[in-house]
Amino acid sequence: MEENIITLTGFSDLFKESLHLKVVDIKSYSPLALAYMGDAVYEVIIRTKVMNHGSTQVNNMHKKSAKLVNAGTQADIIRRLLEEEDLTPEEIAVYKRGRNAKSVTTAKHATMADYRTATGFEALCGYLYLNGELERLIAVVSKGLERIGELE
């Protein structure tokens, strides 16, 4: 039986080809557009991690995911990454653009400071994803989860 192994690069290429995605200058996206994508990408990463613990009730998986996919946790992750100097200067610049972006949305269950900080983190996730830096995206999220004690 032949195994079909797709690398991260292969996945990215397959994704672009199958969906007929055109090349877009990543710098043309607003920080809030990057955060929009980053929010979704980060949630998929977290859901994948949660499901990897084995089959359990969906409600339990949702509770664990919700704990990690909220403004407070995301703000904590990016603050720890910044403290430990785990990000490149370019990544810090993307984060700051996202953090400083003026959004019409307000935080429901977080302080405005945490909400804006989390938006910066999501912008960074979106930037790395859209730039095709999937390995770096996974490394940043993994390191962040490790820093807050959520990587078993």
Rank of each mutant, 00 (worst) to 15 (best):
M1T: 15
M1R: 15
E3P: 15
E3G: 13
I6V: 10
T7P: 04
T9I: 14
G10D: 02
G10W: 01
F11Q: 05
F11E: 05
F11W: 07
S12T: 13
S12L: 12
D13V: 11
D13T: 13
L14C: 13
F15H: 12
F15M: 10
E17M: 11
H20T: 12
L21Y: 11
V24P: 03
D25R: 07
I26A: 05
K27D: 12
Y29L: 07
Y29Q: 04
S30E: 12
P31G: 01
L32W: 08
L32N: 12
A33E: 15
Y36C: 15
Y36D: 11
M37S: 12
G38V: 03
D39W: 13
A40Y: 10
V41I: 08
Y42P: 01
V44A: 07
I46M: 02
I46W: 00
K49L: 11
V50F: 02
V50L: 01
M51V: 10
M51D: 09
G54E: 08
G54W: 09
S55H: 15
S55Q: 14
S55E: 12
S55G: 14
T56P: 14
Q57P: 08
V58N: 14
H62Y: 12
K64M: 12
S65E: 15
A66H: 11
A66S: 11
K67I: 04
L68F: 09
L68E: 04
V69E: 01
A71V: 02
Q74L: 06
A75I: 00
I78P: 00
R79V: 08
R80S: 09
E85W: 04
D86P: 06
D86T: 10
L87Y: 05
L87P: 00
L87K: 03
P89A: 06
P89H: 06
I92K: 07
A93G: 04
V94Q: 03
Y95I: 07
Y95S: 05
G98H: 01
N100M: 06
N100Y: 05
A101M: 04
A101D: 02
K102N: 10
V104S: 06
V104M: 08
A107V: 01
K108F: 08
H109F: 11
A110F: 04
A110N: 05
A113I: 15
D114Y: 10
T117M: 13
T117G: 14
A118Y: 10
T119Q: 14
G120V: 05
G120R: 04
F121K: 04
F121R: 03
E122R: 09
L124S: 01
L124T: 00
G126Y: 00
L130K: 13
L130T: 15
L130Q: 10
G132E: 10
I138M: 09
A139D: 13
V141D: 00
K143T: 03
G144D: 00
I148L: 06
I148D: 00
I148Y: 01
I148G: 04
G149M: 02
E150F: 01
L151R: 02
E152Q: 05
